[in-house]
Write a protein that binds this DNA or RNA. Structure first.
Length: 258
DNA sequence: AATCGAGACAACCGCGGGGAG
DNA sequence: TCTCCCCGCGGTTGTCTCGAT
């Protein structure tokens, strides 16, 4: 069988997603759905392969995704399910509403694995976790229950200030998008999404974006964004601002002066 | 203050399954 | 039945942050 190439390598962007790309993807899917991932990026005007779009959507942009801390119960569930199912992350994710297989996989590799078997993280055994209440206690005291996502959430915002490229604010995009659930119904029209404000995307579009040529159109390119981002070093701040970010990205609201 | 290493997470890659023609 | 294509899954990698030295 001849496998179709994943994507046309030439000219397709890789790496972290930008706010603009996220916004384009969200808007497009809200308008048209995603009947064909392979065709989607071209139709939406994204210089990405369909695979990348699907991954971004399913892991971060989908409205029902729950971001942030894994609760103790969720972590326990993951451990139990992993004991029963092994590395079937998608199956495990199916039992954890709002969590993605990728996220669960990451959490497992980063600390649940160690918790299950601190001496040999690569060996997957059962229930050391339950046999080791002391560690559990420590974890709670240390806020592990609050999970890597927490670190991510907090670091994500600051991350953006340190991205070399100006086009890599993806973490906060995810935060924003993750909180779009309740308001997502509002995103069904061009007017609501602010899609009509998007410049027509041709070959020069991204080069203009990345060179700052259309900076006024997008918050990520706004100088205030950097200030806002660098000022949002804590998760609580981040979460409190979810509606704000949502409005910024989906409705094109202006950023306040700092 | 600078450097290094570990931890954490987002994203990519390749494979296999399954549906359509 | 066979071939082609798309999608989803799991493993892996790249990059950034943070703490220790």
């Amino acid at each position: 069988m001849v496998r179709a190439p994943c994507c046309e390598k030439m000219g397709l962007k890789k790496g972290p997603w930008t706010h603009q790309e996220d916004r384009i993807l969200i808007d497009y899917i809200n308008l048209h759905g995603h009947p064909n991932w392979r065709a989607l990026p071209k139709l939406a005007g994204l210089l990405r392969c369909g695979k990348s779009c699907r991954l971004r959507w399913t892991n971060y942009l989908k409205p029902d995704i729950k971001r942030g801390n894994f609760s103790r119960e969720e972590e326990d569930t993951i451990i139990q399910l992993h004991t029963a199912m092994g590395n079937r992350w998608s199956a495990i994710a199916a039992r954890l509403p709002g969590r993605t297989d990728n996220e669960i996989k990451n959490v497992w590799h980063t600390h649940l694995k160690k918790r299950v078997n601190p001496n040999n993280p690569t060996t997957e055994t059962t229930s050391k976790f339950q046999e080791n209440p002391q560690e559990s206690k420590e974890d709670e005291q240390n806020g592990v229950g609050s999970s890597p996502s927490q670190t991510n959430s907090s670091s994500t915002i600051t991350d953006q200030t340190s991205y070399k490229q100006t086009d890599s604010p993806q973490p906060s995009c995810t935060e924003v998008s993750s909180e779009t659930t309740s308001t997502n119904d509002n995103m069904n029209t061009n007017e609501d999404t602010g899609l009509e404000n998007f410049p027509e995307m041709d070959d020069e579009f991204w080069s203009e974006v990345f060179s700052g040529g259309i900076s006024g159109e997008f918050p990520a390119e706004n100088e205030n964004m950097g200030q806002l981002q660098s000022g949002c070093g804590q998760e609580s701040i981040l979460h409190d601002d979810m509606d704000f970010w949502f409005n910024v990205f989906t409705r094109g609201e202006d950023l306040p002066q700092i």
